[in-house]
Write a protein that binds this DNA or RNA. Structure first.
Lengths: 143, 143
DNA sequence: GTGGTTGCAAAGGCTTTGCAGGCAC
DNA sequence: GTGCCTGCAAAGCCTTTGCAACCAC
């Protein structure tokens, strides 16, 4: 599932009017299994709605982030990518090519201890990011 | 300490020539206890070397990142900040104001399990980032 | 003297924004 | 009909880069 619940509804996303542009952006992001950036989404959406503008894509993605349906992934000097799979927040960021590789691994509870120690903060979530080399870059550097 | 070792030397940082510009950037970053971005470093360095350019600041910071003396912190739509304290990599990123708050808390071993499970990756490090509200924004939103 | 480094300014890339027209409701 | 949404284009911002002059070694 791309979204929080299997029963999400398009119009429950803080979006007032359900235009064909937004429908298309939502569908594209929902079915993306990579970590697309705005330009990638834009390209894909144009196959359906050729007249859509990049600005509209950005506005829609921003709305989805604000409402918690997408997680923005930022990396030094690169375009923001969007993560639609909110179930597990584990990534390897390749220090060579910048790719985000999904990692699925059970994590210990990282929240409650910190919450107890920092009661003055309002901690919502925790994100874990691994740094290293993806498989491609690793073998490329070894050969 | 800002750097890996108390005995680091300036000329051991992959920097060939130790100019006054680089000395100044290194000193400013070393003594910064916030998470400064390039513009902040630039301002501070100009107090010492008024003729320095922003480009030189960026180049020096990039070199420090490449050599592992600084960790870049990126956040959607904001300038890259630099972390000089490499001992613990824990932050809270405030979802309201974007501030990076340092958190010190012992972490369980998050590396070995994932390394075992993904032998095809070359994992160097792991970074943990908390998301929520900093103290200031929390009280501001409650009042 | 040599070649790494600087300052300057321009360019680059990503993202946001103002506005008039359009369309979902 | 109302007001949110769109497309367009320009602007904004952060960052990188080309180049001639400079200076640490």
């Amino acid at each position: 599932m791309s979204f929080r619940s299997a029963h999400y509804t398009l119009d429950a996303m803080g979006i007032k009017r359900l235009t064909k542009q937004r429908k298309a952006v939502l569908e594209v992001v929902r079915h993306a299994n990579n970590h697309p950036d705005a330009a990638w989404v834009y390209q894909r959406v144009r196959e359906r709605v050729p007249s859509i503008s990049l600005g509209t894509v950005y506005r829609t993605l921003d709305a989805l982030v604000d409402d918690g349906y997408l997680l923005p992934l930022t990396h030094s000097g690169e375009a923001t990518r969007y993560e639609a799979n909110l179930d597990g927040h584990l990534h390897l960021v390749c220090s060579k090519c910048g790719e985000f590789v999904d990692i699925s691994h059970p994590l210990p509870d990282l929240l409650s201890g910190v919450k107890e120690r920092y009661p003055e903060l309002d901690i919502h979530a925790v994100q874990v990011e691994y740094q290293g080399l993806c498989q491609g870059c690793r073998t490329r550097l070894q050969s």
